[in-house]
Design a protein around this nucleic acid. Structure first.
Lengths: 213, 213
DNA sequence: ACCCTTCTCTTCAACTTTGACTAGATTACT
DNA sequence: AGTAATCTAGTCAAAGTTGAAGAGAAGGGT
């Protein structure tokens, strides 16, 4: 599973209503074009696909104030909202190697209650630890590690990478438990969208994002 | 870029001549179906595609000894061989997050001369370090790290992950420089294919993530 | 003799992703 | 003023990926 559906659902959700280009800009604002591989084509495709599956409601909009082709605005349906949270929870606990999926999920983590976020992350750690012990037990050859030849290096890479993932997750859990960040139901929510005319401090140099809402 | 082309080219290359099912089995034997996402469909597709691009030469083979549909055998063309090494070199140096691509490349690393392997890995480390300093400089807000909110955790994840990747690479470089493993032109080559009728020791367990020999 | 499962080898349709392209409007430069 | 560049907004064909299905042969049990 790629991160794009989660990202797109999350972007639309933050705006309430958004068209493709807005979503595209949000993702760029979040730096997601760097770590996910969210190309324009994928975004527009995801929007259409999810509209077809009744996760999003599409609204045709008049040719628009600024130039360019007619836009379509989308908003989440009831189902879409459920799907967003399903993906979010799944992405937080799944311990496969997908950094991009995890990143997207972390970006939206504050939309969960604090306690649940911690719970899910703990599950993540558990999953990683289980995976680790299963793998190291299973692939430890009786003939000693040399029998694997250079192939053993691959094991090394994966196990080390998993260890790092677990460590990072533990750190995050601790910070959250100590009260860091503002979660669902704790007052002023964090909104990672640009206000009108605001400048994107993380744009890639030339990029200059305007957000109409 | 996914790892599949490199894996398929490498598998065919080790056999000299191979049909789709053989490639599929090799990948399973290597555990690659776990860490790459090499499904049968992808493998057959890659074979056909690369045949169309003259990277592989296809031979129709008589309906075969055992049951089943007629097989097509493939072997590398001159171009295919070049492409294999091009992909191998690229995958070893590219410092984007793709663990699967790196894993595949490490599996084939001994087909390069030792000195070149070291050279490429050093380039990898350099690339990671450059990326790291560019990112940390660019994304360090003047308003202090708190201004990023929980979004800062994503940065943390990526930078830490990159650091781990660099560390792992340095370790590998050191071992190779000290004479570990047998590289191209150093005698008996490492061949990770099953002999006829040999059993795959890693074929049936459910836990099946890494690679073995 | 019969059925059931497994193995061999491949195909296919549906879906996703990519990268290039279009095209009008606005700004920037000389 | 003229033209180059950039923004806005999106489309499309080609390529890649997935998961399931298919069909023949062979083994294994009752």
């Amino acid at each position: 599973m790629s991160a794009i559906r989660l990202l797109v659902l999350g972007a639309v959700r933050q705006h309430g209503r958004a068209h493709g280009y807005q979503v595209r800009n949000d993702l760029e604002f979040w730096g997601a074009h760097e770590w996910s591989h969210a190309k324009p084509g994928s975004i527009y495709h995801a929007l259409k696909q999810m509209a077809k599956q009744d996760l999003l409601r599409a609204h045709e909009v008049a040719p628009s104030t600024v130039g360019g082709p007619p836009r379509t605005e989308y908003e989440l349906t009831e189902q879409g909202s459920k799907e967003f949270f399903r993906l979010l929870r799944e992405s937080l606990t799944a311990h496969d190697q997908q950094l991009d999926v995890l990143s997207a999920a972390v970006g939206f983590i504050v939309y969960l209650p604090r306690a649940e976020a911690v719970e899910l992350l703990k599950q993540r750690v558990l999953g990683i630890e289980e995976w680790r012990s299963a793998v190291t037990e299973y692939y430890t050859p009786e003939a000693g590690p040399e029998s694997l030849g250079h192939i053993g290096e691959i094991m090394n890479l994966w196990v080390g990478s998993a260890d790092f993932g677990a460590e990072w997750t533990r750190g995050l859990i601790e910070r959250i438990e100590r009260g860091a960040y503002t979660f669902e139901g704790e007052g002023e929510p964090f909104r990672a969208v640009l206000g009108e005319g605001e400048e994107n401090p993380y744009a890639t140099g030339e990029v200059h994002v305007e957000d109409g809402r």
